[in-house]
């Protein structure tokens, strides 16, 4: 189950990475990061009953730390590897539900009870979407602050 999850996350990471035109050598590492990050989040949410925000933070931290050695190997800045790897974890379902609830709220504006229901649904989904995206970014950036010297020297080749 986790392998399948990681496999599809790897494809998603590479696909969204391709939109950002990364160097060709980066694809393998983006796939690895996306797979381990998403698999960890699925494991934490499925087996250990973590909520999506905390699980995303943990996955972001794992991706951030792993991007340091992989960035060094591929001579790519960590952001080139970890940003595409984070994209499969953006909570699309919650984002969709926010938009859907917003439309229904506007359409039912004259009915107080129904509009309040959709307003509540909109805010709940919107808050989850925002907090997950924020925690993913914070988690992945955290290792850069722990090891700034390593993180800033990824593209440095051997001195002549």
């Amino acid at each position: 189950m986790l392998l399948i999850d990681g496999f599809f996350a790897a494809i998603a990471g590479c696909g969204f990475g391709a939109i950002s035109n990364p160097p060709r050598r980066a694809f393998l590492y983006i796939a690895i990061l996306a797979a381990i990050g998403h698999a960890l989040r699925t494991l934490l949410m499925g087996t250990f009953a973590f909520d999506i925000a905390t699980a995303s933070l943990c996955a972001g931290i794992l991706i951030g730390f792993t991007s340091l050695p992989l960035g060094r190997i591929s001579y790519c800045p960590a952001t080139v590897l970890y940003i595409p790897a984070l994209l499969p974890m953006i909570p699309g379902k919650f984002a969709y539900n926010s938009i859907f609830s917003m439309i229904l709220f506007v359409q039912n504006i004259n009915d107080e009870i129904v509009s309040a229901y959709y307003m509540e649904k909109f805010f709940a989904n919107f808050m989850v979407t925002c907090s997950v995206i924020f925690l993913l970014a914070v988690g992945a950036t955290f290792p850069v602050f722990v090891f700034p010297n390593k993180a800033y020297r990824m593209t440095r080749h051997q001195k002549k």
């Binding site: 999850d5 599809f8 996350a9 494809i11 998603a12 990471g13 590479c14 696909g15 969204f16 391709a18 939109i19 035109n21 998403h38 499969p88 699309g92 379902k93």
Partner: peptide, 18 residues
């Protein structure tokens, strides 16, 4: 074209993950 195919595969994978 390569980007288009990869992006489409990415969304297909997203659909599976959801």
């Amino acid at each position: 074209l390569f980007i288009l195919i990869l992006a489409s595969l990415a969304n297909l994978s997203f659909c599976k993950l959801f």
